[in-house]
Design a protein around this nucleic acid. Structure first.
Lengths: 339, 339
DNA sequence: TTGTACGCGTTATCAG
DNA sequence: CTGATAACGCGTACAA
C-alpha cells in the first residue's frame, strides 16, 4: 500500500513538533498564525491526509454504520439506500452495505460482520423468513442502536420507519369497491412479515366495512416475487374461481398475476382488475398500466438514517417511530369497464 | 460507543502478557497448548473481538476497496454490486459504495473521499458526462489501482471489464435485417460514452455489410433514460419519418420509444419494431415483450473485483482486460408481422 | 505559543 | 514457550 505523509513528516521538514502540527491543522486558536500558515502550506505540498485508522483508534469511533437489506434486485432498496447515503455522508459517516438474500442465517452472519467491524449503529430491513429477534436485542443491549425500516421486527423495541400499510391497503380496497367491483380477492404476502399482516388487515377491514362476503377463497398466499403471483393466479383460473378484482401484496405479485391472466386469454381490467403495492417504475410501463401504491423510498432511507444518527449521539432521545405517507396512483388496471 | 474487551483485559484476568494472548489467538505454534486453550476460553467468555482499527493501523492496510457507480436506480448496477460484494467478502475486504449521479464533479468528490479513506483500490463505472482522466491517472500513479467496468475510460491504461458492445450491436442489427426490416434506425446513447460509440459502430458496420442506406436521419441521439427515448421517438413521429425498426442504445430508451409509439396510436412491432440493450427485468414484462441484449451483470461485478484484488496483491500481474459475452433474447418487439 | 510524553489496541522483535 | 518493549499515526494533558 501507498505510504501517506504523516504529521511527523510535516513536523520534521518544518523542524517543529508533531503536537504543533496537529494543533495547526485542527485550526486551534492557541497556535501562532504564522506557523499555522506554514504548516498548512507544507501539509498541502505533501498532500497530507489524516490517517483515518489512527484517528478512529484514538477517538474510539469508527464513524461507520451498517446496513442489512434483503436484496438488491428490485428498485426499492437501491432507492432507499440513496436516501441513507445522503444523510450519513453529510454527517461524515460511512456505510457498510450487506445483503441477507432473504435468509435469516445470512442475516445473522451479516450482523456479526458488522458488529466485528464496530459499526456504531445498524439499519435493517428484515428477511421474509422471520426475525432474529434475540440477536437484534442483544446488539441493542450491547450498545449498538438499531433502526428498522420497511420490514420491521414485531417484538424488538426500537425506532422503526414504515408507511401506514393498513391505511393504504384499506384505501386501495375501497377504491376497488367504489369502482363497482363485486367479487374482490387478495393475494397475500409472506405470512411472517408484518407488512403482509397489515395489508391483509386493511383489506379485510375495508371489505367488512362495506359488508362484502369473505370466504376462505377470498385470500390466497402469493409471496414477494412475480413467479408466486403467477402461480397463485393460475390456480384461481384453473379452479374457475375468477374474482372481478384483486388487491395484490406488491407489484411483482400483481405483474405475475397479470402474466397469468394474459396467458389464459383473459383481459385486465375487463375480466380481472388488479391493484399493486410498492411501486417500481415497471408499474407504469406494462399494459395495462398498473394501479399501485407508491412508497417514498428515498425519504424512508433519509428518515431511517436520521433516526439512527439520533440514537448514536451521546444523549439519544427516546425511541420514536415514523410512519410516512404513500400515495395511490390510479391507472388503467383498476378501471371498471363493465360499469 | 460500546467498549469492547481488549487483549489487555484477557491478559490481566489471566495474569499473562498481552503478547502471549495475541499469539494464542493468532493460533501460533510457539505457544503452550494449555495456555492457548485458556486464552481462547477467556476470549470467548469476554466476547473478545479484535479491534479492526488497531489491526489496520498496525499492518498499514485498510482492507477496504471503493466503488463509484453513476446511479442506483436501474437494476443494472445493483446486480453488479452483488457480484462485487461476493468476491470481496470472500477476500475479507470491505466495500465503500458511492454514487456519482452522472456528474463528473460528484465523481471526483467521491474519488477524493475514497482516497482519504485509504481504500486499497477502486472500482469505477464512469459518468456519462465525461472522464476525469487526469485524476484516475494520478490515483494509479500514487499507488491506488483502479479497475474500470461497463463504462470505461478511453485514455487511462488500466484493467477493464466490458462486454463486446460492438459485436452485440452488430448482431442485434443483423437480427433486424435478417427479419426483413427495411428501414432501420438507431437511437444513440450519450455521445461521450465509449459504449455509445461501440454500439453505434456495430450498428453502422452491420448496415454497411448489408448495403443499407445510411443518411443523416438514420441516427438520432437519445441518452440513457426513458424520457429521452420518448422524446426522440416523438420527434420521428411528428416528422413523419417512421422507420420499420429501431435498434436502441438501451432498454430504458427503447421503453421510452415504446411509450411514444403507443401514445401515437401506433403498434409495436407492426408499425415500428424495437430492440433494446442491457436487459432489466422490465424488458420481458412490457407489452410487447422487448427483444434485448442481456448482460451478465453479476459476473461483471465478480470479474472486476477479482481483477482489482489481483492488482492489490504485492506482485500484481500485468494489466489485463476482460470482455464478457452477453446474449440476445429475442421477443415479440422485433417480430416482423408484415413479412 | 510550543514541546514532551502518553495512550488508543495490535503485532513484531528480541531477549529471557 | 513467554514477557517486555517498540511501533503504527494521531490527539491531548501537562509542562515549559
Amino acid at each position: 500500500m501507498k505510504r501517506y505523509a504523516t504529521l511527523k513528516d510535516i513536523a520534521t521538514t518544518l523542524n517543529i513538533s508533531t503536537a504543533t502540527v496537529s494543533r495547526a491543522l485542527a485550526n486551534r486558536l492557541d497556535v501562532n498564525p504564522a506557523t499555522k500558515k506554514l504548516v498548512c502550506e507544507e501539509a498541502k505540498r505533501q498532500n497530507y491526509r489524516p490517517n483515518p485508522m489512527a484517528t478512529r483508534l484514538q477517538n474510539k469511533r469508527t464513524k461507520t454504520i451498517g446496513l442489512v437489506v434483503p436484496e438488491f434486485k428490485s428498485a426499492f432498496f437501491p432507492n432507499v439506500i440513496s436516501g441513507i447515503q445522503k444523510v450519513i455522508d453529510e454527517a461524515g459517516f460511512h456505510l457498510l452495505i450487506t445483503q441477507s438474500q432473504e435468509s435469516m442465517e445470512i442475516e445473522e452472519k451479516n450482523l456479526k460482520l458488522l458488529e466485528s467491524n464496530m459499526v456504531e449503529g445498524i439499519l435493517i430491513s428484515i428477511t421474509r423468513e422471520g426475525e432474529n429477534d434475540d440477536y437484534y436485542q442483544r446488539l441493542i443491549d450491547s450498545g449498538i442502536p438499531i433502526v428498522f425500516f420497511n420490514r420491521v421486527s414485531s417484538k424488538v423495541n426500537a425506532p422503526k420507519v414504515i408507511i401506514d400499510d393498513y391505511k393504504l391497503a384499506f384505501f386501495a380496497t375501497e377504491h376497488l369497491i367504489y369502482n363497482g367491483f363485486k367479487k374482490i380477492y387478495h393475494l397475500e404476502g409472506p405470512v411472517k412479515l408484518s407488512v403482509s399482516k397489515e395489508r391483509k388487515r386493511g383489506f379485510l377491514d375495508a371489505m367488512k366495512k362495506h359488508h362484502r362476503e369473505i370466504t376462505e377463497k377470498t385470500i390466497s398466499t402469493a409471496g414477494v416475487f412475480s413467479e408466486k403471483g403467477y402461480l397463485a393466479m393460475q390456480k384461481l383460473i384453473t379452479k374457475n374461481d375468477l374474482p372481478d378484482a384483486i388487491f395484490c401484496f406488491n407489484d411483482p405479485t400483481a405483474l405475475g398475476a397479470l402474466r397469468a391472466i394474459k396467458e389464459a386469454g383473459l383481459k385486465c381490467p375487463d375480466d380481472v382488475a388488479l391493484v399493486g403495492f410498492s411501486e417500481t417504475e415497471i408499474a407504469q410501463l406494462v399494459e395495462p398500466p398498473l394501479t399501485s401504491i407508491e412508497q417514498p423510498t428515498f425519504e424512508i432511507g433519509e428518515t431511517a438514517a436520521k433516526l439512527l444518527l439520533e440514537q448514536i449521539n451521546e444523549n439519544p432521545p427516546p425511541y420514536r417511530s415514523v410512519s410516512l405517507t404513500a400515495k395511490m396512483n390510479i391507472r388503467k388496471s383498476s378501471m371498471n369497464i363493465k360499469k
